[in-house]
């Protein structure tokens, strides 16, 4: 069986701050990490490999050359091989172009199961997984919180819903997006780290995946960012001043007037 795990290298967005004077993002020293949800996707694939035996796990990412670091980390956790899709032609891809590009590569690699994190913490769209499944013409199950059973024929999982969960089954090939509850990602082993250092990361460009050029990058992206901005202050706000006791007294007075107390 061949499992492809799609991962993304993201800036650790929890470390990003806005400079209040310029309203721009302050990212000095913000580290790049593997999208946290994708670590759970890697772990899920490795657990399936341990259970079924004859499984090859391939980690796949699309990004600039430095995204190679994320793939090495995946190898250190135990994936068998890693592929980096990197090409200027992919520049400016939105979720649709990204999904198309990744799905072309997955098609090329061959697959029985594709696993992704439920979303990336920088974009938070949760769209690339289902969109890839559409391009691959396979079913998908989103928000998987447990894999109950898997064979070379099919899979039975628990899918997180608002009021609980569904038990869903599907034949292979299938694409899953996974949530944090599914497992606890392992830490890289020393042996894994050694292997990661030496591993060859294969790089692919758009010609390697037989992609149609007009479906890539900016050209292939129906959505565009018009502008970005920091939220504005509301005009009716009241800032109190004085000692904590004075400020609290003023607040309580306001709340009494509004009949909130």
């Amino acid at each position: 069986m061949r499992i492809v795990v799609c991962i993304k290298q993201v800036p650790d967005t929890a470390e990003v701050r806005i400079n209040p004077e310029t309203n721009t993002l302050v990212r000095d020293g913000v580290p790049s990490i593997i999208n946290p949800y994708d670590l759970h996707a890697i772990e899920a694939a490795l657990q399936i490999k341990e259970k079924l035996g004859d499984v090859t796990v391939t980690a796949l990412t699309m990004g600039p050359p430095q995204a190679e670091d994320a793939l090495r980390e995946a190898i250190s956790m135990g994936v068998d091989e890693a592929l980096l899709l990197t090409d200027r032609a992919f520049a400016g891809s939105d979720t649709l172009a990204t999904s198309y590009t990744l799905s072309r590569a997955i098609q090329k690699i061959g697959f029985d199961l594709v696993i992704c994190g439920k979303q990336a913490i920088d974009g938070d769209t949760a769209q690339v997984g289902p969109e890839m499944a559409e391009f691959l013409n396979i079913p998908h199950i989103a928000y998987v919180k447990a894999i109950e059973e898997i064979s070379t024929q099919g899979i039975r999982v628990q899918r997180l819903m608002e009021e609980g969960y569904d038990i869903v089954e599907a034949p292979l090939p299938v694409l899953l997006t996974v949530v944090r509850e599914i497992n606890e990602p392992r830490l890289p082993s020393l042996k894994g780290k050694m292997r990661a250092k030496k591993a060859e990361i294969k790089k692919l460009t758009h010609t390697d995946i037989d992609a149609e050029e007009d479906k890539l990058g900016l050209t292939g992206s129906p959505t565009a960012v018009k502008n970005i901005f920091a939220p504005e202050a509301r005009k009716d706000r009241k800032m109190f001043s004085g000692s904590p006791a004075e400020q609290v007294a003023a607040l309580v007075e306001e709340l009494k007037n509004l009949k909130c107390l």
Binding site: V10, P11, T13, A14, V16, R17, I18, L25, I121, D122, G123, D124, T223, A224, V225, K226, N227, I228, F229, A230, P231
Partner: peptide, 11 residues
């Protein structure tokens, strides 16, 4: 956008 650090208008 961007991990919820800023807002974006998308077209």
């Amino acid at each position: 956008a961007f991990g919820g650090n800023i807002m974006a208008t998308i077209l």
